Computed example of a mutant assay.
Amino acid sequence: MEYRRQRALTLAFVLAGFAASALAYSDLPARMATHWNASGDVDGTMSRLAGAFFLPALTVFVVGLMLAAPRIDPRKEGYEAFRGVYEWFVAGTAGFLAYVHVLVLAWNLDYAIPVGQALAPALACLLYACGVLLERAEPNWFVGIRTPWTLSDDEVWRETHERGALAFKLAAVLALGGLVLPDYFRVFVVAPTLLAAAYTVTYSFLAYRRRE
């Protein structure tokens, strides 16, 4: 089977999420904390059943969509150039969600975990993986920086993705600051991510106008 290692790792992460919930279920509170603001304060809760299995179920849904994309994309031939990297990215996304789920379970089992600080390195890895994926992605309708300008011109796509790859890798490095200075989570993690996204969209527009 093609991409066997990536698919096996993806499945392992999915199953790990469900297994962790099943093992911890009886010790979880009736109302689980499931969302924290940028300051690390709880601002969302769910029932025990929903809180224990929402993220694993969401992981199945997200992974399913990501694996379906190359099959249903009208420009599916573009995936062949970066399919291996894409499959690793799917596995990494499943791993990220499994990690977040374990943090949620641990916090609700009364382990004193600073959620923002614990999330920073995982988000840094995810952002860096986005950068790697962007530098490899060929034109398609589902993966990458999909603006009207990149989808209208393959050269604009390539220019934008080269710049976007660098921007997201830089955001990944800055996100590690949230591990050292968790009180500045917004500065080190949220702001660089938003700026990288805004930069790539703006650059795609300017690159398209320049080619016109």
Rank of each mutant, 00 (worst) to 15 (best):
S26F: 01
F18N: 03
Y99V: 04
D73A: 06
A91L: 09
L11Y: 11
R75Y: 07
A94D: 08
Y25S: 04
L103Y: 09
V102E: 10
A22W: 02
V102A: 15
L23K: 12
G78V: 01
A24N: 08
L55H: 03
A33L: 04
D43P: 10
G84T: 13
A91F: 10
S47I: 01
D27N: 14
E77A: 15
F18Q: 04
S47V: 02
A112I: 01
S26N: 14
E77G: 07
A30V: 13
M46A: 14
T45L: 06
F96M: 14
F54C: 06
E80C: 05
T34D: 08
Y111E: 13
Y25C: 03
E87V: 01
L23D: 04
V42N: 02
A22H: 01
M32E: 01
P74S: 00
L65W: 10
A24S: 15
R31C: 01
D41Y: 09
S47P: 11
L9C: 13
M66N: 06
G84Q: 09
A57K: 10
A16D: 07
K76W: 06
E80F: 06
R48V: 02
L49R: 10
A81C: 06
S21P: 11
W88V: 07
G44F: 04
H35I: 00
V102C: 12
G92L: 05
G51V: 05
S47R: 08
Y86C: 03
E77V: 09
D27M: 09
R31E: 15
V102Q: 13
L11P: 09
K76V: 01
N108Y: 03
L23Q: 09
M66V: 08
F96D: 05
A68L: 15
A8Y: 10
P56I: 00
A57T: 15
L109P: 10
R5Q: 12
F82Y: 05
Y79I: 05
F13R: 11
A91R: 08
L15F: 11
L67F: 10
V104E: 11
M46R: 10
G44C: 02
W88K: 08
E77T: 11
S26I: 00
V85K: 12
L23R: 14
V90W: 07
F18T: 01
R31G: 03
N108V: 01
L28H: 07
A16S: 14
F61D: 08
D27E: 13
F13Y: 14
S26Y: 00
L105M: 09
S21W: 01
A106M: 11
A24I: 05
M46C: 07
V85R: 14
S39L: 13
S47W: 03
N37E: 05
H35A: 00
E77H: 12
W88T: 02
D110F: 04
A106G: 14
A20P: 09
W107Q: 10
T45A: 08
A16E: 05
G84V: 03
A52H: 06
G17Q: 05
V100K: 05
L55G: 10
L15H: 03
L15Q: 02
R48A: 10
F53D: 00
R31P: 04
A19F: 11
S39R: 14
P29L: 00
F13L: 08
V90T: 06
R83T: 07
F53K: 07
Y86Q: 07
A106V: 03
V90A: 04
L103N: 10
S26C: 02
A16M: 11
M32P: 06
P70I: 04
L97E: 05
V63T: 08
Y79T: 04
D73F: 04
